[in-house]
Protein backbone atom coordinates (compact mmCIF):
# COMPACT_ATOMS: atom_id res chain seq x y z
CA UNK A 1 0.00 0.00 0.00
CA UNK A 2 3.02 2.29 0.22
CA UNK A 3 2.62 3.00 -3.50
CA UNK A 4 -0.43 5.08 -2.63
CA UNK A 5 1.24 7.12 0.10
CA UNK A 6 1.41 10.86 -0.27
CA UNK A 7 4.94 12.02 0.48
CA UNK A 8 6.43 15.48 0.49
CA UNK A 9 8.96 15.77 -2.32
CA UNK A 10 11.60 17.59 -0.27
CA UNK A 11 10.91 16.03 3.12
CA UNK A 12 9.00 17.49 6.00
CA UNK A 13 5.33 17.40 6.84
CA UNK A 14 2.52 17.41 4.30
CA UNK A 15 0.49 20.58 4.57
CA UNK A 16 -1.90 21.92 1.93
CA UNK A 17 0.69 23.80 -0.13
CA UNK A 18 3.62 21.33 0.17
CA UNK A 19 4.88 20.03 -3.18
CA UNK A 20 4.31 16.29 -2.92
CA UNK A 21 4.39 13.33 -5.28
CA UNK A 22 0.78 14.31 -6.03
CA UNK A 23 2.11 17.62 -7.38
CA UNK A 24 4.80 15.87 -9.39
CA UNK A 25 2.52 13.35 -11.07
CA UNK A 26 -0.26 15.84 -11.72
CA UNK A 27 2.31 18.14 -13.32
CA UNK A 28 3.51 15.23 -15.45
CA UNK A 29 -0.09 14.61 -16.44
CA UNK A 30 -0.40 18.20 -17.64
CA UNK A 31 2.93 17.88 -19.46
CA UNK A 32 1.92 14.63 -21.17
CA UNK A 33 -1.51 15.94 -22.20
CA UNK A 34 0.02 19.17 -23.52
CA UNK A 35 2.76 17.23 -25.30
CA UNK A 36 0.18 15.19 -27.16
CA UNK A 37 -2.16 18.05 -27.99
CA UNK A 38 0.37 20.83 -28.67
CA UNK A 39 3.67 19.25 -29.72
CA UNK A 40 1.92 16.37 -31.42
CA UNK A 41 -0.20 18.73 -33.48
CA UNK A 42 2.44 21.45 -33.97
CA UNK A 43 3.04 20.52 -37.61
CA UNK A 44 -0.50 21.62 -38.47
CA UNK A 45 -0.12 19.62 -41.65
CA UNK A 46 -2.97 18.86 -43.97
CA UNK A 47 -1.70 15.30 -44.15
CA UNK A 48 -1.01 14.54 -40.47
CA UNK A 49 1.99 12.82 -38.97
CA UNK A 50 1.45 9.97 -36.54
CA UNK A 51 1.52 12.17 -33.43
CA UNK A 52 -0.71 14.74 -35.06
CA UNK A 53 -3.30 12.18 -36.08
CA UNK A 54 -3.23 10.76 -32.53
CA UNK A 55 -4.00 14.27 -31.21
CA UNK A 56 -6.72 14.73 -33.82
CA UNK A 57 -8.23 11.33 -33.09
CA UNK A 58 -8.38 12.15 -29.38
CA UNK A 59 -10.02 15.46 -30.21
CA UNK A 60 -12.48 13.87 -32.60
CA UNK A 61 -13.24 11.02 -30.22
CA UNK A 62 -14.18 13.30 -27.32
CA UNK A 63 -15.94 15.76 -29.61
CA UNK A 64 -18.10 13.02 -31.08
CA UNK A 65 -18.82 11.65 -27.62
CA UNK A 66 -19.99 15.06 -26.38
CA UNK A 67 -22.07 15.60 -29.50
CA UNK A 68 -23.64 12.13 -29.54
CA UNK A 69 -24.30 11.70 -25.84
CA UNK A 70 -24.92 15.21 -24.53
CA UNK A 71 -26.45 16.70 -27.64
CA UNK A 72 -25.54 19.37 -30.15
CA UNK A 73 -25.84 22.33 -27.79
CA UNK A 74 -23.41 20.72 -25.32
CA UNK A 75 -20.53 21.39 -27.70
CA UNK A 76 -19.77 24.69 -25.92
CA UNK A 77 -18.76 22.63 -22.87
CA UNK A 78 -16.45 20.49 -24.98
CA UNK A 79 -13.22 22.10 -23.57
CA UNK A 80 -14.33 21.31 -20.02
CA UNK A 81 -15.18 17.71 -20.84
CA UNK A 82 -11.96 17.39 -22.81
CA UNK A 83 -9.92 18.66 -19.86
CA UNK A 84 -11.53 16.08 -17.57
CA UNK A 85 -10.92 13.33 -20.12
CA UNK A 86 -7.28 14.22 -20.68
CA UNK A 87 -6.61 14.54 -16.96
CA UNK A 88 -8.16 11.19 -16.08
CA UNK A 89 -6.67 9.39 -19.08
CA UNK A 90 -3.12 10.56 -18.54
CA UNK A 91 -3.29 10.22 -14.75
CA UNK A 92 -4.42 6.61 -15.21
CA UNK A 93 -1.80 5.83 -17.86
CA UNK A 94 1.10 7.53 -16.08
CA UNK A 95 0.10 5.68 -12.92
CA UNK A 96 0.86 2.41 -14.71
CA UNK A 97 4.54 3.30 -15.04
CA UNK A 98 6.42 1.26 -12.41
CA UNK A 99 7.18 3.28 -9.26
CA UNK A 100 4.74 5.94 -10.39
CA UNK A 101 2.14 7.50 -8.16
CA UNK A 102 -1.46 7.17 -9.38
CA UNK A 103 -3.26 10.39 -8.53
CA UNK A 104 -6.63 9.01 -9.65
CA UNK A 105 -6.41 6.11 -7.20
CA UNK A 106 -7.05 8.58 -4.38
CA UNK A 107 -10.62 9.06 -3.37
CA UNK A 108 -9.91 12.69 -2.49
CA UNK A 109 -8.91 13.46 -6.07
CA UNK A 110 -11.73 11.59 -7.78
CA UNK A 111 -14.26 12.90 -5.28
CA UNK A 112 -13.28 16.48 -6.08
CA UNK A 113 -13.46 15.71 -9.79
CA UNK A 114 -16.88 14.07 -9.44
CA UNK A 115 -18.16 16.80 -7.14
CA UNK A 116 -16.98 19.46 -9.56
CA UNK A 117 -18.89 17.74 -12.34
CA UNK A 118 -21.92 17.19 -10.10
CA UNK A 119 -22.10 20.73 -8.73
CA UNK A 120 -21.43 22.47 -12.03
CA UNK A 121 -23.94 20.28 -13.86
CA UNK A 122 -26.58 20.87 -11.20
CA UNK A 123 -25.93 24.62 -11.21
CA UNK A 124 -26.03 24.61 -14.98
CA UNK A 125 -29.33 22.77 -14.96
CA UNK A 126 -30.90 25.35 -12.66
CA UNK A 127 -29.41 28.30 -14.54
CA UNK A 128 -30.52 27.08 -17.96
CA UNK A 129 -33.88 25.58 -17.08
CA UNK A 130 -34.86 27.28 -13.82
CA UNK A 131 -37.39 25.34 -11.75
CA UNK A 132 -38.12 23.16 -14.77
CA UNK A 133 -34.89 21.35 -13.96
CA UNK A 134 -36.79 19.64 -11.13
CA UNK A 135 -38.84 17.92 -13.83
CA UNK A 136 -35.91 15.54 -14.04
CA UNK A 137 -37.20 13.93 -10.84
CA UNK A 138 -40.88 14.04 -11.78
CA UNK A 139 -41.30 11.13 -14.18
CA UNK A 140 -44.24 12.34 -16.27
CA UNK A 141 -44.54 9.08 -18.18
CA UNK A 142 -45.32 7.11 -14.99
CA UNK A 143 -48.81 6.80 -13.43
CA UNK A 144 -49.58 9.72 -11.09
CA UNK A 145 -49.78 7.54 -7.98
CA UNK A 146 -46.28 6.23 -8.51
CA UNK A 147 -44.66 9.58 -9.20
CA UNK A 148 -43.84 10.65 -5.60
CA UNK A 149 -42.17 7.31 -4.91
CA UNK A 150 -40.26 7.53 -8.19
CA UNK A 151 -39.27 11.10 -7.36
CA UNK A 152 -37.69 9.92 -4.10
CA UNK A 153 -35.83 7.16 -5.92
CA UNK A 154 -34.70 9.56 -8.64
CA UNK A 155 -33.52 12.03 -6.03
CA UNK A 156 -31.51 9.40 -4.19
CA UNK A 157 -29.98 8.11 -7.41
CA UNK A 158 -29.18 11.68 -8.42
CA UNK A 159 -27.25 12.29 -5.21
CA UNK A 160 -25.62 8.86 -5.48
CA UNK A 161 -24.14 9.92 -8.81
CA UNK A 162 -21.01 11.68 -7.54
CA UNK A 163 -20.43 8.85 -5.07
CA UNK A 164 -20.46 6.10 -7.67
CA UNK A 165 -18.76 8.38 -10.19
CA UNK A 166 -15.76 8.96 -7.92
CA UNK A 167 -15.54 5.59 -6.20
CA UNK A 168 -15.69 3.74 -9.50
CA UNK A 169 -12.60 5.48 -10.82
CA UNK A 170 -10.63 5.42 -7.59
CA UNK A 171 -11.67 1.83 -6.85
CA UNK A 172 -10.78 0.54 -10.31
CA UNK A 173 -7.37 2.19 -10.21
CA UNK A 174 -6.67 1.12 -6.64
CA UNK A 175 -7.85 -2.45 -7.25
CA UNK A 176 -5.64 -2.89 -10.28
CA UNK A 177 -2.54 -1.60 -8.56
CA UNK A 178 -3.24 -3.56 -5.37
CA UNK A 179 -3.71 -6.81 -7.29
CA UNK A 180 -0.51 -6.20 -9.23
CA UNK A 181 1.25 -5.61 -5.92
CA UNK A 182 -0.12 -8.86 -4.46
CA UNK A 183 1.03 -10.86 -7.49
CA UNK A 184 4.43 -9.22 -7.38
CA UNK A 185 4.64 -10.23 -3.69
CA UNK A 186 3.96 -13.85 -4.72
CA UNK A 187 6.88 -13.70 -7.16
CA UNK A 188 9.40 -13.07 -4.39
CA UNK A 189 7.72 -15.64 -2.13
CA UNK A 190 7.63 -18.50 -4.66
CA UNK A 191 11.38 -18.60 -5.37
CA UNK A 192 12.11 -20.87 -8.35
CA UNK A 193 8.55 -20.72 -9.67
CA UNK A 194 8.72 -16.94 -9.78
CA UNK A 195 7.87 -16.82 -13.49
CA UNK A 196 4.25 -17.87 -12.89
CA UNK A 197 3.26 -14.69 -11.03
CA UNK A 198 5.48 -12.63 -13.33
CA UNK A 199 3.47 -13.90 -16.30
CA UNK A 200 0.29 -13.19 -14.37
CA UNK A 201 1.44 -9.65 -13.64
CA UNK A 202 2.26 -9.16 -17.31
CA UNK A 203 -1.23 -10.25 -18.32
CA UNK A 204 -2.71 -8.13 -15.55
CA UNK A 205 -0.72 -5.14 -16.77
CA UNK A 206 -2.27 -5.45 -20.22
CA UNK A 207 -5.70 -5.61 -18.60
CA UNK A 208 -4.86 -2.57 -16.50
CA UNK A 209 -3.91 -0.60 -19.63
CA UNK A 210 -7.36 -1.41 -21.00
CA UNK A 211 -9.00 -0.51 -17.69
CA UNK A 212 -7.11 2.79 -17.51
CA UNK A 213 -8.46 3.87 -20.89
CA UNK A 214 -11.95 2.48 -20.31
CA UNK A 215 -12.28 4.18 -16.93
CA UNK A 216 -11.28 7.50 -18.46
CA UNK A 217 -13.84 6.88 -21.21
CA UNK A 218 -16.53 5.90 -18.72
CA UNK A 219 -15.82 8.87 -16.47
CA UNK A 220 -16.12 11.19 -19.46
CA UNK A 221 -19.20 9.56 -20.94
CA UNK A 222 -20.97 9.71 -17.57
CA UNK A 223 -20.06 13.38 -17.40
CA UNK A 224 -21.69 13.77 -20.81
CA UNK A 225 -24.77 11.87 -19.64
CA UNK A 226 -25.12 14.18 -16.62
CA UNK A 227 -24.59 17.17 -18.88
CA UNK A 228 -27.38 15.99 -21.15
CA UNK A 229 -29.69 15.73 -18.13
CA UNK A 230 -28.82 19.31 -17.21
CA UNK A 231 -29.44 20.61 -20.74
CA UNK A 232 -32.57 18.58 -21.47
CA UNK A 233 -34.16 17.62 -18.14
CA UNK A 234 -37.44 16.59 -19.77
CA UNK A 235 -35.89 13.53 -21.42
Amino acid sequence: MDQFEVKALFGGDVSWYTPTNVTLWMALTVVAASALMIFGARGRAIIPTRAQSAAEMTYGFVYKMVEDVAGHDAVRFFPHVFTVFMFVLFANLLGLIPFAFTTTSHIAVTAVLALTVFLSVTALGFILNGPKFLGLFWVSSAPLALRPALAVIELISYFARPVSHSIRLAGAMMAGHAVAKVFAGFASALGAAFFVPVLAVTALYALELLVAVIQAYVFTILTCVYLRDALHPSH
Binding site: V6, V14, S15, W16, Y17, T18, T20, V22, T23, M26, A27, T29, V30, A33, S34, T83, M86, F87, T103, H106, A108, V109, V112, L113, T116
Partner: peptide, 16 residues
Protein backbone atom coordinates in the same frame (compact mmCIF):
# COMPACT_ATOMS: atom_id res chain seq x y z
CA UNK B 1 -3.26 14.65 3.03
CA UNK B 2 -6.64 15.57 1.54
CA UNK B 3 -6.13 19.32 1.59
CA UNK B 4 -2.82 18.91 -0.20
CA UNK B 5 -4.29 16.68 -2.90
CA UNK B 6 -7.32 18.86 -3.41
CA UNK B 7 -5.21 22.01 -3.66
CA UNK B 8 -2.89 20.54 -6.27
CA UNK B 9 -5.77 18.95 -8.15
CA UNK B 10 -7.52 22.29 -8.47
CA UNK B 11 -4.29 23.95 -9.61
CA UNK B 12 -3.70 21.17 -12.14
CA UNK B 13 -7.22 21.27 -13.50
CA UNK B 14 -7.17 25.03 -13.92
CA UNK B 15 -3.79 24.95 -15.65
CA UNK B 16 -4.80 22.04 -17.88
Amino acid sequence: TFSNQIFWLVVTLVVL
